[in-house]
Write a protein that binds this DNA or RNA. Structure first.
Lengths: 236, 236
DNA sequence: CACTGACGAGAGCGCTGCTCTTGCATCGGA
DNA sequence: TCCGATGCAAGAGCAGCGCTCTCGTCAGTG
């Protein structure tokens, strides 16, 4: 029963690790990422600060864990919204809107975690490679809407007048492999653009740039998302 | 000659204030906003840390000064690009693109100052009212392009199929007064949306979300900006 | 049962933002 | 021309920070 005993140890360790992250998230909401204090977290947990280093080798590693969790949370929210829209038999346009709304709703509910992942990158901090997969979940959800629309012929050709750049993306084949289907490069480029613009809308709302500017924010957001859907070629 | 002597004092004070801000900007580029250290700035200037408090009552006030300066710098860049395009007799579409390009170029040249104003808001920090005017200069530049296009009849009606929200903005009259001309509310809403999406494009590029995704970034940006122009009703 | 390894506690280092007091130079009015 | 007021820099000091190292202790292992 070696494994079970070791399991007990690791379970205890996992629980404490989670308690630390939960407390850190609470402090994040109170003070923001740059004021997050290991000592304060430890104090709140009844530990001494040095004990915390048994679980996270540095403050930045704790932040990395929070970042990964946040990417996973927003990605899961987007995927859940997509799955629900799919099982309801919604149109591709409605699915697109559902994903966009889910991302915005998650951001409104967790503004500090949103700022952690979509705000300024932390100073000397470079996101480790382990964050790239969670970070791409929202984009993949959007892309899979487009993929399904494409295979079912519901996608307008994005020859929207302006010369659509062809080879602006890296690794289009890798993406195609991941999605299981090849999307026209122009469509891929449009989706990436729409993806970044979606977060522009959400970030400006969350970071206060819409204060004293935008009033009916739900309607405003939905309207802009409609434009983005049009831009990527989803039929109205 | 009271005023001249006091002027000398204030001139010395102004010079030191600028030296502090310059040194702080240098540290900003090295370390990022949250690691900006008053003591390090003072050390570099051959002062003792406490002397710095004669010029800025707190670290946050120094940051506020840098934020205001950054808003003014990017606003000035946008306005300069617009003025040049106007004097060259460029079309409204080309003026629009010129402003967008100028904002992106400024961001690429000053990534840390960009992050300071368009990244996550500093923790407990609420931007004082004095920053709102500098912060709106880019948006006003974009709006003035639209105003001129509107008055010269070069603006397509933004009845782009989807129900354009009418009353999503606050203070539409105040804006109209500032611009000297009334733009249809629907156009105003489209411009605000395009404005935020523009910064989504730039932020994702600067904050590293395009790493391993987008290759030909100039072309990618120009193409997206073309879409935004279309969205706000500028004729192609 | 003896042992190893994980763990928490505590002291301590150098740094931070910020405050308060002190001494000095300069400026303005008598 | 002298004197009081004012602006300014320096220094000491406080509490807090991230992080390191050492040292008992106790639980799981062979």
């Amino acid at each position: 029963m070696t494994s079970r005993i070791q399991g007990a140890r690791q379970r205890a360790r996992g629980e404490i690790t989670n308690a630390i992250k939960d407390e850190a998230r609470r402090h994040l909401a109170d003070e923001g990422a740059s004021r997050l204090s290991l000592r304060a977290v430890a104090r709140e947990l009844g530990m001494v600060s040095s004990a915390l280093y048994r679980y996270f080798p540095s403050r930045d590693d704790l932040l990395t864990a929070l970042i990964t969790d946040a990417y996973d949370a927003v990605g899961a929210a987007a995927e859940a919204a997509l799955a629900e829209a799919e099982s309801a038999g919604d149109s591709h346009l409605v699915r697109w809107r559902a994903v966009c709304r889910a991302v915005r709703a998650w951001g409104l509910a967790h503004p500090h975690e949103y700022a952690l992942i979509y705000g300024s990158p932390v100073p000397g901090y470079a996101a480790p490679a382990s964050t790239t997969r969670p970070a791409s979940r929202v984009a993949l959800a959007l892309l899979s809407v487009l993929r399904d629309a494409h295979t079912s012929g519901a996608l307008r050709e994005p020859a929207s007048g302006a010369a659509a750049p062809e080879a602006v993306l890296k690794d289009a084949e890798l993406l195609a492999e991941h999605l299981g289907v090849e999307l026209p490069p122009a469509v891929l480029a449009e989706v990436v653009a729409a993806w970044s613009q979606l977060f522009g809308l959400i970030s400006f709302e969350l970071f206060g740039q819409f204060t004293k500017v935008v009033d009916a924010r739900d309607a405003f957001f939905d309207h802009a998302v409609e434009h983005l859907a049009d831009q990527v070629g989803l039929r109205r």
